[in-house]
Write a protein that binds this DNA or RNA. Structure first.
Length: 436
RNA sequence: UCCUGAGUAGCUCAAUGGCAGAGCAUCCGGCUGUUAACCGGAGGGUUGUAGGUUCGAGUCCUACCUCAGGAGCCA
């Protein structure tokens, strides 16, 4: 009898196998029991027939509770009513533990209760599907970048100062010195890109902002490619190829999981280059018209950054991600290269995911001029000494370069078509929420 | 941080200011193809916390706590 994973069950039809897992649910019908067994790779229905098993096995199954850990032996056979579906004709069981009454029952639960029991909620089929998609997204990110000449560069998580200074950071004690958890690896990547040409960093980022929305985590994962001698147009081309690769890969590998989440896959199939590219001014015009048509409640104030309802409106006008570029310089980060055609604009781009999802990528062309960069650091009242090494990059072979950051959880949320970002990571960290 | 809403059995929810209830889960019993199985029975409560109004408060008032939804900020 070989040990088998439920995901491979179809290739073991007619064979005696062993499954090590947990009891997901059990139904009984007098002298028949139908335990559903979960092993991390899938779920299979067992059939226990009173007349075919030892009395000990029958009695053991009667004692089992939801999520009891068990080792089950039996023969794989096709479901009598469902062609292509396999079930296990159970012969024997070893009980590792009879679980205590399981808090998460097969009925519905509120989100507060589920979040308090996240360590158990992970075993649900919904969490399973989402986190399998997440793992596929992460693999696709690495595969795309690794096979396109990018070198993985880990950047520090403990940092001496803000990358952008504008957002709130988590402070830690670093041997009696103040240090902060990183909010982005970008500035360090501008140094590694000058050494390796094409680099990316992939790691956690931390934001202590008091954001309480379905798009925000305080701890999230971000992938940040940085490319020497690439301009804004090149960056937009990279963005659309990168995102399209990820989405098509998930459709190819995780269609079953997407369907179990009720995702309309046809809405993902259109995610292929080219993505529409519109300027900030064009987006502002769309928002104006949307407001006049009554489709957007609040009027957009030209010159400001897009609010959440604005992003939702613009992104819902397209069937694939839309790239909005050339924002007013004053609403963007200090290191953005000014547009040579219009110095009030910055060569930045945000990629807004469709179906109202909003921003999943933000990036742009980085500033080349030493003197202008120093001026911007002063204008933003940033501590010059913390940025000396960064300014140095503009003294020793300054170079045009571009990069972006993509929030992994936002990407997963969009691909899965789920409402809240908290389900896209095993243990989400949110405002006032750090347990379990 | 601001705005809005909600806290009643382990869970999901009912209860005109007047006896705190149902379904699921748990326990006991029944059923040979069940699919959130079903049928019968049992146990299970400091109504978020602290005050107040009232003959009487789950219900009305005040404060606080927790959670949810939204805004701002951002990936």
């Amino acid at each position: 009898m070989s040990e088998t994973h439920i995901s491979d069950i179809a290739s073991h039809s007619g064979q005696d196998i062993t499954i090590k897992g947990w009891l997901y649910n059990i139904r009984s019908s007098g002298k028949l029991m139908f335990p559903e067994i979960r092993d991390g790779s899938g779920i299979i229905q067992g059939v226990v027939s009173k007349k075919d098993v030892d009395e000990r096995v029958w009695n053991d199954f009667q004692r089992l509770t939801q999520e009891s850990s068990i080792i089950v032996r039996g023969k794989v056979r096709e479901h009598p009513k469902r062609p292509g579906v396999f079930e296990l004709d159970v012969a024997d069981v070893d009980i590792i533990q009879i679980a205590e009454p399981y808090p998460i029952t097969p009925k519905e639960h509120g989100i507060e209760f589920l979040m308090e029991h996240r360590h158990l909620w992970l075993r649900s089929q919904r969490s399973y599907a989402i986190l399998k998609v997440r793992a596929e997204v992460v693999r696709a990110i690495h595969d795309y970048l690794d096979s396109n000449g990018f070198v993985l560069m880990e950047t520090p998580i403990l940092t001496p100062a803000a990358c952008e200074g504008t957002t709130t950071l988590f402070e830690v004690d670093y041997f009696d010195e103040k240090a902060f958890l990183t909010q982005s690896g970008q500035l360090y990547n501008e140094a590694t890109a000058a050494a390796f040409g094409r680099v990316y960093t992939f790691g956690p980022a931390f934001r202590a902002e008091k954001s309480k929305t379905r798009r925000h985590l305080t701890e999230f994962w971000m992938v940040e490619p940085e490319i020497a001698y690439m301009d804004l147009d090149g960056l937009m081309t990279l963005s659309e190829n990168f995102l399209s690769y990820i989405v098509q890969r998930v459709i190819e590998k995780r269609a079953v999981e997407l369907e179990s989440l009720g995702r309309d896959i046809t809405k993902l199939e259109s995610v292929k280059p080219p993505f529409p590219r519109i300027t900030y001014d064009e987006a502002a015009k769309m928002l104006d018209e949307g407001h006049k048509k009554g489709e957007l409640e609040n009027a957009f104030e030209y010159g400001s950054d897009f609010g959440s309802p604005d992003e939702t409106y613009v992104s819902s006008q397209f069937d694939r991600p839309v790239m909005v570029h050339r924002y007013p310089a004053q609403v963007k980060a200090f290191y953005m290269e000014p547009d040579p055609e219009d110095a009030t604009k910055a060569l930045g781009v945000d990629v807004l995911a469709p179906e109202g999802n909003g921003e999943i990528i933000g990036g742009g062309q980085r500033m080349v001029s030493h003197d202008l960069l120093v001026q911007r650091i002063h204008e933003h009242n940033l501590p010059m000494d913390a940025f000396e090494w960064y300014v140095d990059l503009r003294k020793y072979g300054t170079y045009p370069h571009s990069g972006f950051g993509m929030g992994v959880e936002r990407c997963v949320r969009w691909i899965c078509g789920i409402e809240h970002i908290r389900e896209t990571v095993p243990f989400p960290r949110m405002l006032h929420s750090i347990r379990p």
